[in-house]
Amino acid sequence: MDVNKDSNQKAWLLFLGCAVPYRVSSYEISTRKVLAELDIKLVEMPEYNCCGLPIDPIDHEMMLILAARNLTLAEEKGLNLVVLCPGCAGTLRKVNKKLKESKMLREKINSYLKETGREFKGTIEAKHLLQLLIEDVGLEKIRSAVKKPLFNLQVSEHMGCHVTRPTGAVDFDNPENPEALKKLIEVTGAKYVDYIDKSACCGAPIAGVNDKIPLQLTKEKLIHVKDAGAQALITVCPFCHMMFDTNQPRIERMFNETFKIPVLHYPQLLGLAMGFSSEELNLKGLRVDPTPIISQVSDRAEGK
């Protein structure tokens, strides 16, 4: 079935989702920069739609249809999907797996898709950016692209739930002891800092119903990150990033705390290690001032 699992395949169809083009363009900018450097060709995806996750709570079947429609677009092009948002990635992976496995469900969903001239066949794979980097690019290739190792930096991660959960449906890494992002951080030369509750949720998905709880969850995690001595937090999710970066000043005001922890998208960190400038990686698009990180990086470049 996995005809396209060919590891020589270098072109990937880019699934942007909703939140990245809406508010988190620095994630997209930096992703495009580093993937080009790693010989990954990104193909644009006209006609795409929301992955379906936001409406799963109100209509599971419609979610399946939206996800399946995206998968058929990729099948048509004969390309695997690379996804920036873990919510979209988890949804597309889950639905892809379910529809491949269950003939009954596939027939049901196809009976709807037929109305728009589409059919799910089950010929492609969908992967989150992290999974692409680990499984298809590989740590060795990334290591050889690192020109300016970030030895001066100490960073922590917040990976985001849907990269690894639910285990059986997503099939990537171990949510109880995740390693993918850790390995990818260490490859840049930065020191990896662990903290308690590392794999706990930031609460972002319920912010539209109740924003008090997500802010409390994020505050707690920021306290742990700060206590652990990290100079920056690394994310790979647009929603988690909004919680930790965009909302950080608000959290500081609400809870009378001071964090000032820059929150970088992983490709920004990797990009710095590859030698891209902070302008090229759109670091100025971050809410929390990343100057301390940038000066660490340039100090090193000047051999201080």
């Binding site: 363009s25 006609e47 079947e61 249809i65 709807y112």
Partner: peptide, 26 residues
């Protein structure tokens, strides 16, 4: 988007989605 060097956001097809939404009762 385009000023920052990104390609234009791919066009979507809301009409197809509305058709599906009618069909399913969504």
């Amino acid at each position: 988007r385009e000023q920052t060097g990104l390609p234009p956001l791919p066009k979507r097809n809301p009409k197809a989605l509305e058709k599906l939404a009618k069909e399913t009762g969504f």
